[in-house]
Nucleic acid binder design. Sequence first.
DNA 1: CATATTATGGACATGTTTATCCACATATCC
DNA 2: GGATATGTGGATAAACATGTCCATAATATG
Lengths: 146, 146
Amino acid sequence: MFSQTAEYALRAVVWLADHPDTSLTREQLAGPTRVPADYLAKVMHSLARAGVVQAQRGRKGGFTLTKPADQLTILDVINAVDPVRRIRTCPLALKGHTHRLCPLHKRLDDALVTMEQAFSQTRISDLSEHNSPVRALCEFAETVHA
Amino acid sequence: MFSQTAEYALRAVVWLADHPDTSLTREQLAGPTRVPADYLAKVMHSLARAGVVQAQRGRKGGFTLTKPADQLTILDVINAVDPVRRIRTCPLALKGHTHRLCPLHKRLDDALVTMEQAFSQTRISDLSEHNSPVRALCEFAETVHA
DNA sequence: CATATTATGGACATGTTTATCCACATATCC
DNA sequence: GGATATGTGGATAAACATGTCCATAATATG
């Protein structure tokens, strides 16, 4: 239901949130989050364009969150890489039926709204180890160390 | 968020529900629902295998719903062609972390549960013209007639 | 300024979904 | 049984998502 890209983006952002005030390189992110490093480069680029992270080139470069993790939601991340596509007009190519959806597409869109709400209500900081009994990223950090 | 295939399947099933006790051929379904006829063949086949519709070959053949539309939900249709893939184990390949999800994947799975519930609570009959002020399939029927 | 490090951006490869086409099996009608 | 209508199944293509590779630009450090 979610794209692989969105999954990758969320893992990277959560990892960044767990390492505040630190610039992490693509490689440093790719390892613990288990995202293909070369593909992660593209994902991080999307996040940078969307203003979720700030990129810094050159030596000592890397990525940091542009906002504190408690001001960043799951929805922000998902919309940056793979926006929820609401159903606003009839998917069938109809004449003047753009203003009101039929029951089917109304229900489907309602489901999308519900998901958007769930995503917008969860802050990235809620996913950190400090704020949850179970550590984010399935406690992956415990199984690997640089 | 939903696959094109699921969208097609829902259109076809809603159309079938609006024409009860009638066997509709692939062509008769493809027209008003605007689904590519050849692709619809495959979608209907999936629905038949899942027991949502019954297929009848040969002359005067076609498709009918196996159950009354008020005993069939959106979830039944979606699961037939493009099942909601719940997150039951950690997407990161971890050792003994299958029993409990981290906060991130717990939240994502919660969102999936919410969607499943929304889908299972809507019956196909709820989408028919008789039970709704706005006709199903965006009143497409009004714009085309055989 | 030279070098090493790092993100950027494009080309390319692979995989999956969506779509098309056609031969075949099955059923109805005469 | 012959002719016609229909779903079934496989091969193939097109579009898109995912993944890999490499040259380039930018930045810090010495």
